[in-house]
Each structure stands twice: as C-alpha cells, then as structure tokens.
C-alpha cells in the first residue's frame, strides 16, 4: 500500500519535473527542475531495494553532474530566453511516443517469453551494498576498470578543453588574431628546440 502511494507520488513528481525541463524557455528553471527530478528518481531506486544505486544517483547526478552544469552555465548567457525552432509539434510528439513504445517492446519481449533467468541472483542475508560489491569486483571487474579509464580520459579532456587559454577571451578576438596567437606559440616552440 505504502509502496503504491510512494510510486505514484514520485512518478507524478518526476514526470512534472522533467516536463518542465523539456518545455521551459529559461535555462535556469530547466537546471533546477532537472536536479529535483534526479532526486525523485533516486526514490525509485530506494523503493526497489537498490540502496547503493540510489545513493550513487544522488551523489553523482545531483552532486557532480548538476554542479558541473551549473558551473558551465556561468560561461553561457543564460538570462535570455531560449528560442526554439517551431517545427511541426505533432510529428515530434508522435515520433517520441512511438520510439518510447518501441523501447518498451524491446525490454519487455524477453520477460514476456520467460526467456530470462538470473545470472547473478541476489543473495539472502547480504546487504545491497555488499552484494553489489561482490558482483562488481568479481564478474564485472574488467568493465569497472575500463569505466575508470574512461572517466580519467574524460577528466583530462574536460581540463584541456575548458582550461585552455583561460586568461584570453577567444570571443573578443578575430579569427586572424587567434591564428597569429597559434603561429607565435609555434615559433616559440621551434626556437626552444634549437
């Protein structure tokens, strides 16, 4: 009974928040509604018994990803209203709904045909975090390491892309000036070699 109440409450809240994110013309409203929606989604994970996943959802999404978006939005002009292209809205809605139904069919098909069995069953008497750790560090060790390397690459890429030439404003410079700046640094490097 309480599960049903919690499910419907959080389902309604999540749908409303994400609809605001998609439909609003203010970037700041979109960001805050998105952060709220992420917190509400973690409630589903707690209802489903995936405690560790819920904690990760709150820490990573609302803690890291949303903070990163908020930080990135300081670079952009977010006060002005976002202008959207007005193509045919009916086509957009029909295509979105059709694609979602197709995704559900893909996910449901193996369940309906009972063609699915538990590879790593949830053990009794073991907490969720412990069970997740046991599966993650035995069966999924290689994907875990690959994900770690991917995060490292992403971190380096983010630092290089966003941190390059922070002291100069590339917006206020013409293309020729940027070219000249590149040329001067190249000649510097050549001179350093000789």
């Amino acid at each position: 009974m309480f599960e049903a109440i919690a499910f419907y409450l959080f389902a309604a809240l999540t749908i409303v928040m994400f609809t605001i994110t998609v439909m609003t013309s203010q970037a700041l409203y979109a960001l805050t509604a998105m952060a709220a929606g992420m917190i509400f989604i973690s409630a589903f994970f707690f209802i489903l018994g995936a405690d560790f996943l819920g904690a990760i959802q709150i820490i990573v999404y609302t803690g890291a990803v949303m903070a990163l978006y908020a930080f990135g939005m300081m670079f952009f002009d977010t006060t002005r209203n976002v202008v959207e292209k007005r193509t045919n809205p009916q086509i957009v809605f029909i295509l979105g709904t059709l694609a979602a139904i197709m995704v559900v069919a893909i996910v449901v098909a193996p369940i309906v045909s009972n063609n699915i069995q538990a590879l790593y069953p949830i053990q009794e008497g073991v907490g969720n975090s412990q069970a997740v750790g046991m599966v993650l560090f035995t069966k999924y060790l290689v994907p875990f390491e690959v994900a770690a390397v991917m995060l490292l690459v992403a971190m380096i890429a983010g630092i290089v892309l966003a941190g390059k030439k922070m002291d100069k404003s590339l917006t206020l410079m013409a293309e020729e000036e940027i070219e000249m700046m590149h040329a001067s640094t190249e000649t510097h490097q050549e001179r350093g070699e000789h």
């Binding site: 995936a50 560790f52 996943l53 990760i56 959802q57 990573v60 999404y61 890291a64 990803v65 369940i111 699915i116 069995q117 538990a118 590879l119 790593y120 069953p121 949830i122 069970a131 997740v132 599966v135 993650l136 069966k139 999924y140 994907p143 994900a147 991917m150 995060l151 690459v153 992403a154 971190m155």
Partner: peptide, 19 residues
C-alpha cells in the same frame, strides 16, 4: 527478476553520463 546485473548496467550508465 532477482538479478544484480541490471544494477551493474545502471552503474556503468551513470559513469558514461558523467564522462
């Protein structure tokens, strides 16, 4: 289903989203 693989995939999706 009673299987932890789904949660594992969710973890990797979160990692991909962050990067």
């Amino acid at each position: 289903i009673g299987d932890l693989s789904g949660q594992m995939f969710a973890f990797f999706i979160i990692a991909i989203a962050a990067s």
